[in-house]
């Protein structure tokens, strides 16, 4: 039976602040991509439909792929107890995130507000929704789902840590 395991990096000074900055760097690329995507919506609305759809799909694929990459990268240094915590958090967090998204979009005023703003962002006026609006709506829904899942994962992770206890 192999006991070989990658040595854990030693704890460094500046703990939480350093970790926060480190995490921010890891999550910066998808945030930048999505910010750029939403900022360019008025310009995208004037482009050819195929180009708009391609850019939308590329942005979505990048965010999904980056999320998977970061999760895999972060799991690399975890031991089996931490991995169990991660799995607990992911399973509960994903379910809670989907549930929260549905709950959030369920009230008609919220859905109307989201739809109105999507139309406003893509057409510049509160007119009839166009196809672009549908595409943007799909991306928006996806991003919201991912954010809610991430939030759910953070909360479930906190529950796990509380359950197994952090103090001697």
């Amino acid at each position: 039976m192999s006991h070989a395991r990658r040595p854990r990096p030693k704890a460094q000074k500046g703990g939480i602040l350093r970790k926060s900055r480190h995490s921010l760097l890891w999550f910066a690329p998808p945030i930048v991509v999505m910010a750029a995507f939403f900022a360019s919506l008025p310009w995208l609305a004037d482009l050819d439909e195929t180009v708009t759809l391609s850019i939308t799909a590329a942005a979505s694929a990048f965010v999904l792929a980056w999320g998977r990459f970061v999760a895999t990268r972060m799991e690399r240094d975890l031991d089996e107890v931490e991995l169990a915590g991660q799995r607990f958090a992911q399973a509960r967090g994903a379910a809670a995130g989907i549930f929260l998204t549905v709950l959030l979009l369920l009230p008609t005023p919220v859905m109307d507000w989201v739809t109105d703003n999507l139309i406003l962002m893509t057409t510049g006026s509160r007119g009839t929704p166009e196809r672009d609006t549908v595409y943007v709506g799909m991306v928006f829904g996806l991003v919201l789902l991912l954010v809610m899942q991430a939030l759910g994962t953070v909360v479930a992770n906190a529950i796990w840590n509380r359950r197994i206890g952090g103090n001697a």
């Binding site: 395991r5 040595p7 854990r8 031991d79 089996e80 107890v81 931490e82 169990a84 840590n161 359950r163 197994i164 206890g165 952090g166 103090n167 001697a168």
Partner: peptide, 16 residues
């Protein structure tokens, strides 16, 4: 044993 202190704590207390 090359795990985190929290992990040892969890095993020691029978939580894991």
């Amino acid at each position: 044993v090359q795990v985190s202190r929290n992990s040892i704590n969890a095993v020691e207390n029978g939580k894991f």
